[in-house]
Design a protein around this nucleic acid. Structure first.
Lengths: 351, 351
DNA sequence: TCGCGTTGCTAAATCGTGTTAGCGTGCCGA
DNA sequence: TCGGCACGCTAACACGATTTAGCAACGCGA
């Protein structure tokens, strides 16, 4: 079923058929009668455009690429890809997915393989927020960084979660519950340099937390820096806190740390949230499985994927207008209320 | 940089350049001198083939499609996709990823959008193992079902985890630890019909379990059927068991159920594995976070993705030879040893 | 009658590659 | 001297669409 077949069957030239089927009939004065006839036979014959051919001719393939460093077993990555794929599909685009494992050689190869297939643009995603070096060749076409910013000055747009705001939100949850003391941080701090290496999330969350805590006059009793943010680290850090203190609030820098904290608190016979309030970040699936459910500030993975694609597709327009100023798009991180935060026990209560 | 540019720069015709660069130089008697010259200038000019053009001409696009029903937040899906993408990339193929959400209309649209782009084949994946209805149009090209079998007789190959074998493996872990009594099933059973709807996994795991337990003379004391397999269901089912029994072994039909079981056991003051041994299925990330780590029979998601693509690419060859008999490929599910299984307390010990 | 603009459509070139058929040259044997 | 063959390469078409340039017919005013 080619355009020629449709043209012949409706008794017109291929040109006419093409004009009709690409919606330019009005513009180029094809009569309504002919237009209807062509559409009808095309439908009848089950004609579908060969996107390869169109791409060859027009240079646009209705296709974008999505390259991530690690899909990670976290599953959050999956949501990001899903958001991207859905947003693309909504606009008639298909998505090539590639994974580099962080290897620059593979990155380069993926970018080239995608350009070989004439993708209209590429989303380059990091699975945890950080600065990345742009792979060679990414500049040959439109590109958007997802969950990452570029180390070098460049003309590339970024889409990132608004981690500073997330830090503020988490702190506000604690403050609004009435806590003014007994607050401990699990995962980073107290200084803004006391973070796992390369973790933009850590430093920004910390900035937001400190900003609100200081403004509200909340004392941060201790901060446990963890090199990794896995459950066992949260477990160990919480044990450490319990050796010296009787905490009222644990602000965990992610939900896996919080999971470990729950285990340590449980072993110590402390109840969440009656004895200790716990707040997390990420809205990892684990958050909703904990008992009580964890109150956490969500990484909007799906929304991040959607936004990245929208920004990318928007770039096509902007490029045409010659606008090349890079923008950092920050996606809000919403608070998901669980049952893990309660007012302080009467003795500690503020006011 | 087109083929014509390379041809001109090396002083030969486009035909010759094409032959050299597609590796048919020997076959068509191009002199070594010319071959070297063409390769050199191509490399020098940074020439890359336009895959769209090649696809248009040859009908093969070096591209496959991957359609799943739900990427699910489980993250296991991500591993499957990753396996598929890696295997494809290893063979020079790129992968279009699409998600249908289970909607037949979307499925159809995705299949068509992929065929429009002339994919060489499609992997159609279900996120939990089950029978699916083939989307219309899937037959227009090579296709492989992943983690699913077709309800209708068809010529489509399937790649599925070997769940019966997994059931046997789980039972063997229990038997080899010395247990002969006090075994309870969490999630399904005791009859092979007592399963969540549409769950192939449930019935096959059950078949494998029963086979080995019966052969070893192990008594299954109770089986808790759960409509869903989420942590809270495992929690509730375990509470139910504890109301009437003092279990020695809990075989949980997946790891999330086991997670709930851990919570219930912990609340009841029972220790894993000293008081109760626990076995799960899936090797969900949660399994390695539990304390002690859960012994579980892994769903080899990555390997499933790899196999699906390998079978699909193998199909191209088989088709050429006219072989169209459908095959169900079963991928083994390996046991991942955690610390959640121990010999029974002396009183109950066999022999 | 002529010139001109509008209407409705099409011929032909084009995108970048693969493929078929065949061309010129030189060597060999008769 | 001539026919035939192997060698090394190329002209031209095809794939399936878009796009440019332009053609024929018609109406209309001068």
């Amino acid at each position: 079923m080619t355009l020629a077949d449709v043209a012949e069957a409706s008794g017109v030239s291929a040109t006419t058929a093409s004009l009709v089927l690409s919606g330019r009939a009005r513009e180029l004065r094809i009569s309504e009668a002919v237009e209807r006839r062509v559409r009808a036979t095309a439908h009848e014959l089950g004609y579908r455009r060969n996107t390869l051919s169109v791409g060859l001719r027009t240079g646009r393939s209705q296709t974008i690429g999505f390259i991530s460093d690690t899909v990670a077993s976290s599953g959050l990555a999956g949501d990001m890809i899903r958001g991207a794929v859905e947003a693309a599909h909504r606009r008639g685009f298909m998505v090539f997915v590639g994974e580099s494992g962080g290897d620059p050689v593979v990155e380069r190869a993926l970018v080239e393989a995608m350009h070989d297939r004439r993708v209209d643009g590429i989303v380059f995603a990091a699975m945890y927020t950080r600065e990345v070096a742009l792979p060679e060749g990414l500049h040959d076409g439109p590109a958007v960084l997802l969950n990452a910013t570029s180390v070098s000055r460049s003309t590339v747009h970024s889409v990132v979660p608004d981690e500073v705001q997330a830090g503020r939100s988490a702190a506000r949850v604690v403050v609004e519950a009435g806590h003014r003391s007994g607050v401990h941080l699990i995962g980073a701090g107290p200084g803004v340099d006391d973070i796992p290496p390369n973790s933009t999330a850590a430093v920004e969350r910390l900035v937001g937390l400190r900003e609100v805590f200081e403004a509200a006059g909340v004392e941060v009793v201790s901060a446990q820096r963890c090199p990794k943010w896995m459950p066992e680290d949260g477990y160990a850090a919480t044990r450490e806190v319990l050796r010296h203190h009787r905490p009222g609030v644990l602000v965990c820098f992610n939900d896996r740390l919080a999971f470990g904290a729950y285990q340590a608190l449980g072993e110590a016979g402390l109840s969440v949230p009656d004895d200790v309030s716990v707040v997390g970040f990420d809205d990892h699936p684990i958050a909703s499985w904990l008992r009580p459910r964890l109150t956490t500030v969500a990484l909007p993975h799906h929304e991040l994927g959607v936004r990245a694609v929208e920004v990318l597709l928007g770039l096509f327009e902007r490029r045409r207008r010659g606008d090349r100023t890079p923008v950092v798009h920050r996606v809000p991180m919403p608070v998901r209320e669980g049952g893990s935060v309660a007012p302080p026990r009467t003795a500690d209560r503020a006011r």
